[in-house]
Design a protein around this nucleic acid. Sequence first.
RNA 1: GCGCUCGUAGCUCAAUUGGAUAGAGCGUCGGCCUCCGAAGCCGAAGGUUGUGGGUUCGACCCCCGCCGGGCGCACCA
Length: 589
Amino acid sequence: MAPFTMTISALLESKLRSATASFGPVEARVQAANDARFGDYQTNIAMVLAKQQKANPRQVAQQIIDQLDVADMCAPLEIAGAGFINFRLKPEWLAKHFTGFLSDARLGVPQPEHARTLVIDFSSPNVAKPMHVGHIRSTFLGDALSRIAEFVGHKVIRDNHIGDWGTQFGMILLGWKTELNKEALAADALLEMERIYKLISARCKADPATLQAAQQELVKLQSGDEENLQLWHEMIRLSQAQFDAVYARLGVRFDVTLGESFYNPQLKDVVVQLRDRGIARESEGAWCVFSDQVGKPENDPFLIKDKDGWRDNPAMVQKSDGASNYTTTDLATLEYRLKTWSPTEIVYVTDGRQQLHFRQLFAIFGRWHSELAATVRLAHVWFGAVLGDDGKPFKTRSGDTVKLVDLLDEAEERAYALVTEKNPEASEADRREIARVVGLGAVKYADLLPNRQSDYVFSWEKMLSFQGNTAPYLQNAYVRIRAIFRKAGEAFEVGNTAVELVEPAELSLAKKLLQFGEVLPFVLEDYRPNLLANYLFELATIYHGFYEFCPVLKSEGATRTSRLALCDATARVLKQGLGLLGIEAPERM
RNA sequence: GCGCUCGUAGCUCAAUUGGAUAGAGCGUCGGCCUCCGAAGCCGAAGGUUGUGGGUUCGACCCCCGCCGGGCGCACCA
């Protein structure tokens, strides 16, 4: 028998490869059937081959079946529809196979053939500004992708590219010197820094003298003025302390936090290199990268079409005042990451509005470091907006951005009220802890469930309704399983438990559990944790069906042991799967 | 104006990247607690996938044209 950590689809694919060898090279893909009437797994390979060879798909399917040796695993194969081959797993084979799953620490997730190294750039809050609702998707997505990649067996570097440099610091410095409230700073540093920033920013718009004063503070900072540098360091320290508190609360960690300022020493050199190599040229006093005229104009990020045809859409790498901007910083960052970690992949988790920027960035980098660029997959993993009930960006009633800590507080408060209502006899401390896990989980799950590219409507009622496809539903499935083991009283050792798969609900559950290992690599292909969320919801639903129809503690002998084993496996997959989404699974709720 | 992106059940979203009769949740209607936690389960109703063409064995998915929304278009990031 193949090593356990080969998924069933991979097992069938390898057999299919040998069965189709005589047809020439073709990608053998077997996927879980989307409808139980079509068996457990299906492949459309016969139709692919038939198209290539202009043959009859059903005849090709028959020829493949004649070569396919799966009699031990599957019931006799059927050809269905236009030429699908359907696989139905034999319950005896499944039961035997499932026994291996029970003692597998990796829960059936195969070791990757080639371990990748991913730098994942996510969260990226700004110094001197409180984290807000705009940071949740990047933070949750980046964290989930990091956890998943790591669990699958890849190496991950979590990099928080904080915004610690830029023109806003002129205003904040001016405000710090003239308007700072020390008590307010001590109470909530980010709130106070934001207040003085907004104050000066508004004043700058109305008053040229203030604007000039702010610009002078910025020039002093950039030229190394000691006082301003010291204040700036203080702002970073205060901000980082609050970021750390939020991340600790969220269970998010980073391997490195290298802000934009870290790359300042490289910026001049980046521009010089781009200039010397003819990649950037001067335009209206600024230095910009233009199209290299290679490739189709419609795929060229440096061209844009207007009524007179294609015109330039350059990327600026140095402003006319001599300062660099974010494209330059991102180029320096990219170079640093490649030279430091030699990643196979760099993933940027930001909102969709930055698509053009990243297309230009990747294109510039390819021209600047073509040999290095060829070694790495650069991915802009973008996401849509979080909207309010009105379909507009999510704001407070008064129109302000929603602070992340306020959002988390409210989630826990609402969860606390619900837990108290549902479970009034639990102690205050227990209810608080459950509310924390459930409230946080609800927010994270609601964010990770939709396709990342869609905008989604933020709704407390929905995520905390505790019905349907929500974190609490999944957590509850876990809790119910744990209750069974508490009630059983005896210690349950999985070992090499022989499993009986007789009832339809038992079979469905075992099959679904075995698919955990098929889902995770797929999630990483397109960086879509929502596929894991969907899988977990389906698993929990199937478990609930099993729970209704297959009594565990009331059954006896081998059936009881077998069902306990199914429960144990489900609990482990649920806990692990939720954990990969950054969500905890409570013992009671 | 140009580009990106989205348009799927009353509402909120999926759809294994071109596969079979498009699925969930909420809401609506009808069932199930002397039975391991009912935060659950079972069932019903609900669709010309914005629209008109095209490509092929097969299209929510790819191509072309419209309609509508969001975002972006060099000195913010």
